[in-house]
């Protein structure tokens, strides 16, 4: 019998592959910039050997460009490392604003390809939630992917986390073309096991053009088919 966790894991694995491919693409870009900057330094050195003179400011700016790309690469690798460790602890307490900013950081290339600017609205107080971070990340990505097709001319989305009674909600705002029929079809089918696993619910506010993801503040129950929580 296939457990809920197994079903969700298939989508999780697909998501993991998608993000890994995007990160490798970003790394290729930073490597390419460093390759060209280093190459131009060599070109300039060759010209200098031929008595053409050396523009010190150009050499300095190329050095700065390489340093910038090293810092950028370091940040990409830090994000990749954090993303890779997301599956280490099935259940974990996370701060939601930090988590959502991380979600956007690792998918920056994918959202930029769609030309959509996505921001996270900060909260006054930290919003702590005990959940399954990896599966929540997968679910939010599916919602963002669907949401990016619904922004209309604005090409902008905002994620707004907030506390509502005993639960936590994440409002996805800016869905300008959200229509009545989206209520049933907004989340693709592969997202349903993720929703169940996270004991989450989705509501739509068609007047405000907002999707609301509601999460329990503290997810406790082990789903069927999952062994006791392990941490490393």
């Amino acid at each position: 019998m296939v457990s809920l966790l197994d079903t969700a894991s298939v989508e999780g694995l697909r998501f993991f592959g998608r993000i890994s491919a995007s990160i490798s693409h970003e790394l290729k870009n930073t490597l390419s910039i460093m390759n060209e900057s280093a190459g131009l330094l060599e070109d300039l050195a060759l010209l200098a050997e031929q008595g053409k003179g050396l523009d010190a400011s150009r050499v300095k700016s190329l050095g700065s460009s390489i340093k910038r790309q090293i810092q950028r690469t370091d940040q990409i690798i830090r994000n990749m490392n954090r993303f890779s460790h997301a599956v280490d602890e099935p259940l974990k307490e996370i701060e939601l604003v930090d988590f959502l900013e991380f979600v956007l950081a690792v998918s920056r290339r994918l959202t930029a390809a769609k030309g959509v600017a996505i921001t996270v609205q900060p909260t006054d107080q930290p919003l702590m939630v005990v959940t399954r971070p990896f599966f929540l990340h997968s679910l939010i990505w599916l919602l963002l992917e669907a949401g990016m097709g619904q922004t209309g001319q604005s090409k902008a989305l905002t994620l707004m986390p907030e506390k509502i009674e005993s639960d936590i909600s994440i409002r996805l705002m800016g869905l300008e073309t959200l229509a009545l029929e989206a209520e049933k079809s907004f989340l693709p089918k592969q997202g349903e096991p993720l929703l169940s696993l996270l004991e989450a619910k989705i509501k739509m506010d068609l007047d405000q053009k907002v999707l609301i993801l509601i999460l329990p503040k503290r997810l406790k129950d082990e789903p069927r088919g999952e062994s006791a929580s392990t941490t490393s």
Partner: peptide, 9 residues
């Protein structure tokens, strides 16, 4: 940074 350097090279 990539495209500008490539053009110069």
């Amino acid at each position: 940074d990539l495209v500008a350097t490539l053009a110069e090279r």
